[in-house]
Computed example of a mutant assay.
Amino acid sequence: MSRRFTHYDGRYDPRTPSDTSSLVGMLAFAALFPFLLWAVSHPAAAATVVTVGAVTLLLARFGTAAAVRRLRGRSTAFKLPGLGARVEVSLSPKLNR
């Protein structure tokens, strides 16, 4: 049996009201607030960290796409130095749907 909840404008919503988004927002704010204070105290270092992070994400995005184009479903292998383990990697393109 489903209950219906009335909105302030008279509409009905069959979904249960939830404060999840506000809870997630509060936790995210609490987690990021110390970094915000650090960024205000050290703006040059914060700009450097943001720039390096953005460049890293872009290189990972385009580098992965280039590796997929280069490998085209073939596999490549390499050994991890010091461990003697062999790692085999195979990349294939996946269509966005």
Rank of each mutant, 00 (worst) to 15 (best):
residue 60 A to F: 12
residue 10 G to C: 12
residue 12 Y to S: 04
residue 56 T to Y: 15
residue 70 R to K: 12
residue 12 Y to A: 07
residue 78 F to G: 00
residue 11 R to A: 08
residue 65 A to F: 09
residue 24 V to D: 09
residue 8 Y to M: 08
residue 37 L to Q: 05
residue 96 N to P: 03
residue 16 T to K: 09
residue 45 A to W: 15
residue 54 A to T: 14
residue 22 S to C: 04
residue 86 R to A: 03
residue 24 V to R: 10
residue 90 S to R: 13
residue 5 F to V: 15
residue 39 A to R: 08
residue 20 T to G: 00
residue 7 H to D: 11
residue 76 T to M: 04
residue 38 W to G: 06
residue 63 G to K: 13
residue 92 S to K: 08
residue 44 A to Q: 12
residue 66 A to S: 05
residue 80 L to W: 03
residue 75 S to K: 01
residue 49 V to P: 10
residue 19 D to T: 03
residue 39 A to S: 13
residue 62 F to K: 13
residue 78 F to Q: 00
residue 34 P to K: 14
residue 11 R to H: 09
residue 7 H to Y: 10
residue 42 H to A: 10
residue 67 A to I: 01
residue 15 R to C: 02
residue 47 A to F: 13
residue 87 V to Q: 00
residue 78 F to H: 01
residue 7 H to T: 12
residue 59 L to V: 04
residue 17 P to S: 09
residue 51 T to R: 11
residue 91 L to A: 03
residue 17 P to R: 13
residue 89 V to H: 00
residue 91 L to R: 07
residue 78 F to I: 01
residue 1 M to W: 08
residue 5 F to M: 01
residue 21 S to M: 01
residue 25 G to I: 03
residue 76 T to R: 08
residue 11 R to L: 09
residue 75 S to L: 05
residue 13 D to G: 00
residue 14 P to V: 14
residue 76 T to F: 02
residue 21 S to N: 11
residue 48 T to Q: 09
residue 44 A to E: 07
residue 73 G to V: 01
residue 51 T to V: 08
residue 71 L to H: 09
residue 61 R to L: 06
residue 81 P to M: 09
residue 8 Y to L: 14
residue 71 L to K: 08
residue 37 L to P: 00
residue 34 P to V: 04
residue 69 R to D: 14
residue 89 V to Y: 01
residue 90 S to G: 05
residue 96 N to A: 15
residue 6 T to E: 14
residue 46 A to I: 01
residue 81 P to F: 04
residue 62 F to C: 06
residue 68 V to S: 04
residue 70 R to T: 01
residue 92 S to N: 06
residue 33 F to N: 03
residue 30 A to V: 15
residue 56 T to E: 15
residue 30 A to G: 02
residue 78 F to L: 02
residue 41 S to I: 14
residue 66 A to K: 13
residue 2 S to R: 13
residue 15 R to E: 07
residue 21 S to A: 02
residue 75 S to V: 00
residue 37 L to S: 05
residue 61 R to P: 02
residue 41 S to Y: 09
residue 74 R to M: 03
residue 62 F to H: 11
residue 83 L to A: 06
residue 11 R to M: 11
residue 29 F to G: 02
residue 84 G to S: 01
residue 44 A to V: 02
residue 1 M to N: 14
residue 65 A to D: 07
residue 28 A to G: 07
residue 13 D to A: 01
residue 38 W to F: 14
residue 67 A to M: 03
residue 88 E to G: 01
residue 23 L to E: 06
residue 71 L to Y: 03
residue 21 S to E: 12
residue 78 F to Y: 05
residue 46 A to G: 10
residue 90 S to A: 07
residue 39 A to M: 05
residue 10 G to S: 13
residue 20 T to W: 10
residue 8 Y to A: 11
residue 26 M to Q: 07
residue 56 T to G: 10
residue 81 P to A: 11
residue 24 V to Y: 04
residue 60 A to C: 02
residue 27 L to Y: 00
residue 31 A to I: 15
residue 93 P to K: 14
residue 55 V to I: 11
residue 54 A to I: 09
residue 49 V to Y: 15
residue 63 G to P: 02
residue 75 S to E: 11
residue 7 H to G: 11
residue 67 A to G: 00
residue 62 F to M: 10
residue 94 K to Y: 10
residue 34 P to W: 15
residue 67 A to V: 03
residue 23 L to F: 04
residue 14 P to E: 03
residue 63 G to S: 05
residue 42 H to F: 07
residue 90 S to K: 03
residue 39 A to T: 01
